[in-house]
Amino acid sequence: MWQQVIVALIVVAALVHFCTKYLPAALRKQIVYLLSRRGFDQNKLAKLFNTKSSCGDGCASCGSCETTPAASSDASSSAPLKRVIMLRVQR
């Protein structure tokens, strides 16, 4: 009896680890949303599943609810920035 309980706990812990690390971000966000609707703390779940809290709670952490764009209008008219990848050569 105790062996089955211990094995079940190990399997549940492995499932939780898999869900928090290897699932795509969209599925992790859905899991956080569904569990938060069931009464669990959304901030703790978001931290556990490595996602941000959803914007539906009005926490203003993601900044997507802003009415003004974050970038200035003069920066958008300039040429696009070129990104340079620096390589370190080992000899």
Score class of each variant (00 low, 15 high):
7 V>K: 07
75 A>N: 04
59 C>I: 02
62 C>P: 00
83 R>E: 11
43 N>F: 11
30 Q>L: 11
85 I>H: 06
65 C>H: 09
15 L>D: 05
35 L>M: 13
87 L>G: 11
43 N>A: 13
15 L>M: 12
15 L>Q: 08
62 C>N: 03
39 G>M: 04
44 K>N: 05
78 S>K: 10
48 L>W: 00
59 C>F: 12
51 T>W: 02
16 V>S: 09
89 V>K: 08
12 V>R: 07
50 N>K: 10
53 S>I: 14
64 S>K: 09
48 L>T: 13
15 L>W: 10
14 A>H: 05
80 P>A: 11
2 W>E: 06
75 A>I: 14
6 I>G: 01
70 A>R: 10
66 E>S: 14
35 L>N: 02
35 L>K: 00
55 C>G: 15
74 D>L: 08
9 L>R: 04
59 C>S: 09
28 R>P: 02
39 G>C: 01
3 Q>C: 03
60 A>L: 13
15 L>V: 14
51 T>G: 05
49 F>W: 05
43 N>Q: 13
78 S>F: 10
38 R>S: 12
69 P>V: 12
9 L>I: 00
30 Q>N: 09
88 R>D: 14
79 A>W: 07
12 V>E: 08
78 S>H: 08
61 S>G: 15
46 A>P: 02
22 Y>D: 04
22 Y>Q: 05
56 G>L: 00
6 I>S: 05
29 K>H: 02
84 V>R: 08
18 F>P: 01
22 Y>R: 08
4 Q>V: 00
34 L>D: 13
54 S>L: 04
27 L>G: 03
58 G>Q: 06
7 V>L: 08
67 T>C: 04
72 S>L: 11
37 R>D: 07
45 L>A: 04
45 L>D: 03
35 L>Q: 08
74 D>Q: 12
85 I>Y: 09
56 G>T: 05
34 L>T: 15
41 D>I: 05
86 M>N: 13
70 A>G: 01
8 A>L: 05
12 V>A: 11
66 E>T: 15
63 G>M: 07
14 A>E: 12
29 K>W: 01
79 A>C: 01
19 C>L: 03
86 M>Q: 11
77 S>R: 11
18 F>I: 03
84 V>C: 04
43 N>L: 09
1 M>S: 12
4 Q>K: 07
47 K>S: 13
90 Q>R: 12
4 Q>L: 04
61 S>W: 07
72 S>G: 14
19 C>V: 00
22 Y>P: 02
49 F>A: 00
39 G>W: 09
50 N>T: 01
55 C>S: 14
54 S>N: 07
8 A>Y: 04
83 R>A: 15
33 Y>C: 03
79 A>E: 14
